[in-house]
Simulated scan of single mutants.
Amino acid sequence: MNSHQAQLSSSHSPIELLKRVRKGQPQQLGALLEIYRNYLYLLADSQLDRKLRARSSPSDIVQDTMLEAHRDFHQFRGGSEGEFIRWLRQILVNNLSRSIQMHVLAEKRDIRREVPLEQLHASFERSTVRLRAVFDGREESPSSNASRRERAVLLADIMRRLPPDHRNVLLLRNMQGLRFDEVATQMERSVPAAKMLWIRAIKQLRTRLNQRETG
């Protein structure tokens, strides 16, 4: 994102940017899309295991998603931020599915059995619910108030700026829903150490969130 886009995304709300694009200012579409880059990255990152990351990174998948959203923006018919987020997530799901299919094909397995889009949609929804739950301290149903989706975008921005270990433990525990023994195995730590790291990560996340909201 260039400095002009950064200034736009910080000084205008997503809905205002959306309206400006539709009123004939397409140059502001880049600033609108950049607002959701961290959110899309965390969702993609939560779906890729270590083996798949060796072939396709979350950054690559998100970049493809941003380019396609820019190209196909004329197809978006919604008017709210929640609708725009869902539209972006649909593009991300499709790109992630293609990436997984390429990986599965390389392993010579049956892609029809292993990459159902419905499963990816459900997994994305669970990740979004869990990401919001970091803020609220509880999980919600997928049909909860759509305004909470915007909180997930805010949390994603903050999480991307956390130290890598803190971000990873939140990703594994809160977005992937792993047990602490599974988190410990993934991070090559003891279970008590993984729990302590998670507690510190939650504390730092909430501190930064409070600073963001009061600042």
Rank of each mutant, 00 (worst) to 15 (best):
E107R: 07
V134L: 14
S13D: 03
G24E: 10
S123R: 09
E118V: 02
G82D: 10
V62A: 03
H103D: 04
L209N: 05
S3E: 11
W198P: 02
R20A: 11
L171Q: 02
V21F: 14
E182A: 10
A69M: 07
S13G: 02
E125S: 09
Q63P: 04
P26N: 00
R208E: 07
T214F: 12
D157Q: 15
M159S: 00
R167Y: 03
R173N: 08
P116A: 00
S141Y: 10
R37Y: 14
E125C: 01
S13C: 01
F73E: 15
R89C: 13
R138D: 14
W198F: 11
L18G: 04
S144K: 12
R86M: 09
V153F: 11
Q186L: 04
H4K: 12
Q75V: 11
A152V: 04
L88G: 02
M159H: 06
P142Q: 09
E182P: 13
M196K: 13
L205H: 07
S3Q: 10
Q27P: 04
R55G: 00
G137H: 15
Q119M: 06
T207R: 15
K108A: 00
N38E: 15
R77K: 15
P26M: 01
M187R: 04
H70E: 14
G215P: 03
L29P: 11
Q25F: 09
R167E: 11
P14R: 01
Q176A: 01
R113L: 12
W87V: 05
L32V: 00
R109K: 15
K203G: 03
L154S: 03
L162W: 10
Q176S: 01
E81C: 03
S99T: 02
V115Y: 08
A44P: 14
R20L: 14
I85T: 07
R55T: 01
D45W: 07
K51F: 15
E68G: 01
A194Q: 05
R167S: 01
I199K: 09
L105N: 07
M196N: 12
S11T: 05
F135N: 10
Q186A: 11
A194M: 03
A146E: 15
Q28Y: 12
L178E: 13
E118L: 04
H103C: 00
Y39N: 05
A6V: 05
Y41S: 00
Q101S: 08
P14C: 02
N2D: 12
V183A: 06
N174L: 07
D110F: 01
M187W: 06
E213W: 08
T214P: 15
L92C: 05
R132I: 14
S56K: 11
H166Q: 14
G82K: 04
K51P: 07
R20M: 14
S57D: 05
R86H: 11
G82Y: 09
R71Y: 09
I15T: 11
R130P: 08
T214A: 14
I85G: 06
V129D: 14
A194D: 04
